[in-house]
Simulated scan of single mutants.
Amino acid sequence: MRLRVEFTTEPFDLDEAPAHAVVAREIVTGAGLDAVDVGPFGNTAEGGAERVLDAVGALLRDTLEAGATRVSLQVNVIEESADPAQSEGSAR
């Protein structure tokens, strides 16, 4: 099963990335997920269910410890690719 997680951490600071946002970026970029996209108003990442769920757990624990006062997230099941080459690449 593949999952997509979309999340934001607060409070926002447009002048400088807060510590909790930096922690969130490090977690998703280091989790071996596919299609990671981080930005100031929202972040998304896709991958196998186990990796996404592990990343979500770390994201919640570590961003709250780093000063986040709110973490909003949504997790969706996404369809597996019909292209075998993409399926192989996502099984990292």
Rank of each mutant, 00 (worst) to 15 (best):
M1G: 02
M1D: 00
M1K: 00
R2K: 08
R2P: 14
L3G: 00
L3K: 05
V5W: 00
E6V: 01
F7S: 00
E10K: 06
E10Q: 11
P11I: 01
P11T: 01
F12Q: 02
F12H: 01
D13T: 02
D13S: 00
D13R: 03
D15E: 13
E16L: 06
E16S: 10
E16K: 12
E16H: 10
A17Y: 05
P18A: 11
V22Q: 15
V22A: 14
V22E: 15
V23F: 08
R25A: 15
E26S: 15
E26T: 12
I27S: 07
T29M: 11
T29C: 12
T29Q: 11
G30F: 07
G32A: 02
L33A: 08
L33S: 07
D34S: 12
D34V: 07
A35D: 15
V36D: 05
V36R: 01
G39K: 08
G39V: 12
P40L: 05
P40K: 04
P40D: 05
P40V: 09
G42M: 12
G42D: 08
N43V: 08
N43Q: 04
T44D: 02
T44I: 11
A45I: 02
E46H: 04
G48D: 15
G48L: 15
A49N: 07
E50T: 14
E50A: 14
L53I: 14
L53E: 04
D54C: 03
A55V: 05
V56D: 04
V56H: 04
G57T: 11
L59G: 01
L59M: 04
R61Y: 04
T63A: 09
L64P: 14
L64G: 09
E65R: 14
A66H: 09
G67P: 10
A68F: 08
A68V: 04
T69H: 02
V71M: 13
S72F: 05
L73Y: 14
Q74E: 15
Q74L: 14
N76V: 01
V77D: 05
I78H: 09
E79Y: 08
E79F: 07
E80D: 15
E80Y: 06
E80P: 10
S81I: 10
S81F: 07
S81P: 04
D83K: 10
D83P: 03
Q86D: 12
S90W: 09
A91F: 03
R92F: 02
R92V: 06
R92Q: 11
